[in-house]
């Protein structure tokens, strides 16, 4: 198994997903899209073992995903959900959550993390209840980044945000991918967003990969009726 392949799915089945076979290379930014119920979020949770396949195997850097320490894997393959799901307390409490689990936190890191997600440094001591939806989502992203993940799973992180905030978050994600080499695997409903952030596209419908490949090619020349219908 070559190590340029970050993830390899080998006949993976997990309801509603059927037999999935595909690989993701290091540095590819993969956009998962498709109609509701296609199994996009289910697929995303398989990458960091928030759930496991019923059949088949997943490989990460050439080794079976199940052979990694589950807590270490989840830190390396971070997840940002649709809702921020912040913990009660301050912004700092949230930022240090992941690293503190191993006693590996220094408050000095908070400022840089907030800068990464374009929030002012004086937000550190704010209660999360006082933040707007967009700010909460940025704290949620920073909280995941605090673990220094090499892969970032994103489950429609901007679906509840306005256009302006969405653009800001997209800039942050782009920066992470380009400057820090983080691989993005993102579920999105918006094809425009997929085009802006992704290099590769996987179109899912009813638990199956209907089309996949270079994102620009995929969207400029859809081969199946399902993708054509989804794009209109």
């Amino acid at each position: 198994m070559e190590h340029d392949k970050l993830f390899t799915f080998d006949h993976v089945k997990k309801s509603p997903l059927h037999s999935l076979n595909f690989s993701i290379k290091r540095g590819e930014n993969v956009m998962l899209f498709g109609p509701s119920g296609a199994g996009k979020s289910t697929l995303l949770h398989l990458f960091n073992r928030l759930s496991d396949p019923e059949k088949g195997s997943i490989y990460y850097l050439g080794k079976d995903l199940q052979s990694y320490s589950i807590t270490e894997l989840r830190k390396q393959v971070g997840l940002v959900m649709q809702a921020p799901n912040l913990f009660p307390g301050t912004v700092l409490d949230n930022l240090k959550y992941g690293p503190s689990l191993d006693g590996d936190w220094n408050d000095a890191r908070a400022e840089a993390l907030l800068e990464d997600v374009q929030l002012p440094a004086d937000y550190i001591d704010r209660s999360v209840d006082q933040l707007s939806g967009g700010e909460q989502q940025r704290v949620s992203l920073a909280r995941t980044l605090a673990n220094k993940p090499s892969v970032l799973l994103l489950d429609e992180p901007t679906s509840a945000l306005d256009q302006h905030t969405t653009e800001e978050i997209e800039q942050v994600l782009e920066g992470l991918a380009v400057e820090q080499g983080v691989t993005l695997i993102m579920v999105t409903h918006h094809l425009d967003q997929a085009k802006r952030l992704g290099s590769r596209g996987i179109f899912l419908s009813e638990g199956e990969i209907v089309e996949e490949g270079n994102l620009a090619d995929l969207l400029s020349n859809p081969k199946t009726e399902e993708l054509q219908a989804f794009m209109t």
């Binding site: 807590t71 270490e72 989840r74 830190k75 971070g78 997840l79 959900m81 799901n85 913990f87």
Partner: peptide, 16 residues
């Protein structure tokens, strides 16, 4: 459920 999923995804063990 959302917060628990977030905590697990950040590397927390069930007790944490």
């Amino acid at each position: 459920e959302g917060r628990l999923t977030a905590a697990l995804s950040l590397g927390a063990e069930p007790k944490q």
